[in-house]
Design a protein around this nucleic acid. Structure first.
Length: 263
DNA sequence: ATGGCACATCCCATGTGA
């Protein structure tokens, strides 16, 4: 089976791209981030007509996540609160960034990690606190659902080989030591592994390129979209690839899909 | 050193992204 993650930067603006890509790449589940639309205005019918069950957690203008699945998902759940309780979860659930569901015994958690804006800003602090909450959430889930896949836009490049130029990484978001430590505590310390790095150890493998300065043409990118596999799933991993194709289409998202294949 | 581009919005400028 194949599961993909893709930050589409507005599902309404990118609907044609998503439809075209899914037709050519009929993955079992597509985890979408930055839908930027209320649930009421989500283009559900078009995706259902393609043969996908549609699960959404959105809001106006910003954030928003969706799960598109060929088969129905079980126990679909939005936000942290269903696992962590209202006191810990609800403050973070105003921003729609987490959506999970069970597909054939496997719990798929789709996340859109906050961007962080600038080092030292309130948003940067929010990003670090959000990741600490993600850690608590996953730590609680893992014993209940050992077959756990966490994927999405993490807005963090885990290592220097995941950035076209790591110079000055402490001065800007996405690769500071503090962000990497928060990622380590939320993901790696729980025993989860980076699916992509099971199959590809090269530098220069990116999932996001800035719209500006012809970054894609010059391959000035970052690898910030990830699939993380719990120990029970790692033996099933057969491949994990980045599909750069949609980044060259007309009016693309700045991110591209990442696909993991499990047996 | 800076800016560059794109998206959504009660706006034609601003907030946000990364």
């Amino acid at each position: 089976m194949k599961i993909a993650t893709w930050n589409v930067n507005s599902i309404r603006t990118r609907l044609d791209h998503v439809m075209t890509w899914l037709t050519a790449n009929p993955v079992d589940v597509l985890c979408v981030q930055e839908t930027k639309v209320t649930d009421q205005d989500f283009p559900r019918a078009a995706l259902e007509a393609l043969g996908y069950h549609v699960y959404i957690s959105g809001q106006k203008s910003y954030n928003g996540v969706a799960l598109l699945s060929r088969n129905p998902l079980q126990n679909v759940s939005a936000g942290f609160a269903p696992v962590l309780g209202a006191a810990s979860g609800e403050p973070f659930d105003e921003q729609k960034r987490v959506l999970s569901g069970i597909h054939d015994q496997m719990l798929i958690v789709n996340v859109y990690v906050p961007n962080g804006s600038e080092i030292g800003s309130e948003k940067y602090d929010y990003k670090l606190r959000w990741l600490a909450t993600l850690r608590d959430y996953l730590k609680a889930l893992l014993p209940l659902q050992p077959q756990l896949l966490v994927c999405g836009d993490f807005n963090i490049a885990p290592e220097d080989r995941d950035i076209h130029d790591p110079t000055g990484r402490e001065q800007r978001i996405m690769a500071t030591d503090a962000e990497r430590q928060a990622l380590r505590q939320a993901i790696f310390d729980l025993g989860l592994v980076d699916a992509f790095r099971q199959f590809n150890s090269s530098a220069g493998q990116f999932t996001w390129w800035d719209y500006r300065a012809a970054a894609f043409r010059r391959n000035l990118g970052w690898r910030i979209d990830h699939h993380y596999l719990a120990p029970a799933l790692t033996p099933r991993a057969k491949d994990c690839v980045i599909d750069k194709t949609p980044r060259s289409w007309e009016k693309p998202s700045d991110h591209v899909p990442v696909i993991v294949e499990l047996e």
